[in-house]
Design a binder for these strands. Structure first.
Lengths: 210, 210
DNA sequence: AAGTAATTTAACCAATTAGTTAAAATAAAT
DNA sequence: ATTTATTTTAACTAATTGGTTAAATTACTT
């Protein structure tokens, strides 16, 4: 078995495995671990439950695979942006724009990650730690950029969290924001999110007086 | 039935009803709708399942009651703060401090609200709309305050979302932040949250150049 | 064409869970 | 003390779900 490697796929998984992972991602992200069922994952993947369990023996296993993958997407290539040799303003700008684009394409990703993480921190914390993210390196690089730009007055961790907050939260809180600020009009909400590329940037630049 | 009104309780509910609601709040907020079981709610309330179903016929009913209550807590008395006659800076300061205190006392409230809302927007949107919150009034009042302070350059909805984001997100994302920025040290994380009272305020004031 | 691997079918098990029910027990009220 | 209301007990139903299994079928390979 497992002889049907999919040449078209970038990874070295069989075709049904890829279909399963794709389906599982969709279902888990939409419904969460508790809300998702193996049956639905099989249906979405276009296969049957027996085969699903044949490839992934336990729901838990499948979930962890998906969660790790999702988290890696959720944590973008900050590293690249931060450690580039662009001026600080450019760095901040491209980070915000890149991240909002990412979130626009995957609007359910953050709430999925955050909720699962808050429900099963112990079990998932190990997974996210193995995601190849090096926070201290990012902090160090970012700090250097700030020093070079002459900004000493604001603690870097708070700045980092501010930026992430202003990008991610509006996506996570879409139902509230959309219904309270835009009368449930999705177009208006989407426009608002796109506008934030500019307004988050402006806000940060002014706050840092660059 | 329902003759045992609890004189000690502020509302006009019977004692078991209050115990049930308290228990349900705890369990639902901790585990979400899908993760919570009626049995556990009964256990936490110190009664049995039969009585639980006797007072709340359906899980759905109990949940909606809890959700509405939770949402009302989650949306603080912005109205009061905004429509007071304090200077803008004071308003912003007390809002941030009050909200962070609220979130510190109820750290699981926001992720619960946001996740349920994202999972069942249609069903819950009606509930949150009946929560007596008047966003346009807040916007209007806040806008007036900004005009008076001579701030015209920044769109109010973005400002509002910025403030809320910077307060709420760090609480929602506790596991990630705590583990990545503070090595899982809860004390450090808690301190960080308290520090944000100052740093969010500073950030906003500078960004608005008040 | 034969043999091997991949997939489906369909039935099943065991556990969990929302919700019901009726009778027994307890507490409160009169 | 007797009625009435409240609560418990305990057993039950029906549905859902994760997971298994064995045989049948289809596809692939040689």
């Amino acid at each position: 078995m497992d002889n049907n490697k999919n040449i078209n796929s970038p990874n070295n998984l069989s075709e049904p495995e890829n279909k399963i992972l794709e389906a599982a991602k969709k279902v888990f992200i939409q419904k969460g671990f508790d809300g998702a069922t193996m049956q639905e994952i099989a249906d979405v993947a276009g296969i049957n439950k027996a085969l699903l369990h044949y490839y992934f023996r336990k729901k838990e296993i499948l979930f962890k695979t998906i969660f790790q993958q999702a988290f890696s997407e959720f944590v973008p290539n900050i590293q690249e942006v931060i450690s580039s040799d662009k001026p600080l303003r450019k760095k901040i700008k491209s980070f915000i724009e890149g991240y909002i684009d990412l979130l626009t394409k995957n609007p359910y990703l953050p709430i999925f990650i955050l909720n699962e993480l808050s429900q099963r921190p112990e079990k998932l914390i190990t997974i996210i730690k193995s995601s190849g993210l090096n926070p201290s390196l990012i902090i160090k690089n970012f700090d250097k950029s700030l020093q070079e730009a002459g900004i000493k007055s604001y603690p870097i961790k708070h700045l980092l969290v501010n930026i992430l907050s202003m990008c991610i939260f509006p996506v996570v809180a879409k139902p509230v924001i959309s219904s309270f600020l835009f009368d449930g009009n999705d177009k208006s909400y989407q426009l608002f999110i796109q506008q934030r590329k500019k307004y988050i940037y402006d806000f940060i630049i002014k706050a840092l007086k660059i």
